[in-house]
């Protein structure tokens, strides 16, 4: 088990390191941070002064090293546009996105798992076909468009929910539903196949022979094994919610980290984009690592293999 954990952590570390390099090099090669910082009317001397002040004239590997070290000290640099430390911006916007991601994952679980169970318990019936159709439709629908349709129907035509913003928990329901729906196809299909597979095994037949029926059979015996792969995919989906939040937050004007990312890209705020690229990736890597460890803990076959 220890060896497995160490191997997974090692992989996560090297992936994180590689991505930090990509994030750093990409934006450093692409733009001249001193020029961006100085603004359009700056003279050459002013630009040079800024370059020396922030150390942009030092060798690239040294800049990278300094960037990475200060990153892990919690110093993500300073935003060119907002004139604020990036760490402060992140701290201000992150809780909003975390709430949205958590709520949308709840929506995914509440929709996808019951739908998958229903489909697996009634294979090749009308219920199964409806569940699969929902999955096919949810996969093809553009998320930003779904968001706008939800606003149009449930906030304008029938004003049940607020149109946009993030003042109350009520504001998060529509966006959470829209963002949550994007993960439904994967989780629903996985639940369905997992459960179908488990229902055909000998131990379920044995439980049936002992007289277990319905709920007892499903929850005490079948679901435990069927949901194993679902758990890890859910953790991965949680990591992906950050990326999804970029679109959803833009549509619903939620002042989270996704909207911050879009604004920073559009105004070319390099330090913010750099930090967010790395943070998003680390969040995903961490969610993935958590999923692997969780799975190993739940399923002895993985950690012993």
């Amino acid at each position: 088990m220890l060896e497995y954990i160490l191997r997974r952590c090692g992989l996560a570390l090297s992936v994180g390191f590689t991505i930090s390099l990509v994030a750093f090099l990409l934006l450093n090669f692409a733009t001249d941070p001193a020029v961006t910082m100085a603004g359009e009317e700056a003279t050459t001397e002013e630009i040079e002064r800024l370059r020396a002040l922030y150390g942009f004239d030092r060798p690239l590997y040294l800049q990278y090293y300094n960037w990475l070290v200060s990153f892990f000290r919690g110093d993500f640099g300073e935003s060119v546009h907002w004139r604020l430390p990036v760490a402060e911006l992140v701290a201000r916007h992150f809780p909003v996105t975390l709430l949205l991601a958590g709520m949308s994952l709840t929506v995914t679980i509440l929709v996808a798992i019951p739908l998958g169970v229903l489909a697996a318990m009634n294979p090749n019936t009308l219920i199964d076909r409806i569940a699969l159709s929902i999955a096919v439709a949810a996969q093809a629908i553009p998320n930003f468009w779904l968001g706008m349709m939800a606003i149009l129907l449930l906030a304008v035509t029938w004003p049940i929910f607020p149109v946009s913003g993030n003042n109350t928990i009520w504001h998060f329901i529509l966006p959470a539903f829209v963002l949550g729906l994007s993960s439904v196809p994967a989780i629903m299909r996985l639940t369905r196949t997992g459960l179908l597979e488990v229902m055909g095994t000998d131990y379920i037949r044995a439980a049936r022979a002992k007289g277990y029926r319905g709920g007892a059979l499903l929850f005490r015996h079948a679901m435990r094994n069927a949901l194993l792969p679902v758990v890890s995919v859910l953790a991965v989906q949680f990591g992906e919610k950050l990326g999804g939040a970029i679109v959803t937050e833009t549509v619903f004007a939620i002042n989270g980290i996704g909207r911050l990312a879009v604004q920073s890209v559009l105004i070319g705020d390099v330090p913010v984009v750099q930090s967010l690229l790395f943070l998003f990736a680390m969040f995903f890597v961490f969610a993935n690592l958590l999923a692997d460890l969780l799975n190993a803990w739940l399923d002895p076959r993985i950690r012993l293999a």
Binding site: L242, I246, V273, L276, L277, F280
Partner: peptide
């Protein structure tokens, strides 16, 4: 692990 949308935007 790359945040695809953000990286693509950048």
């Amino acid at each position: 692990a790359m945040p695809t949308i953000l990286l693509a935007m950048a």
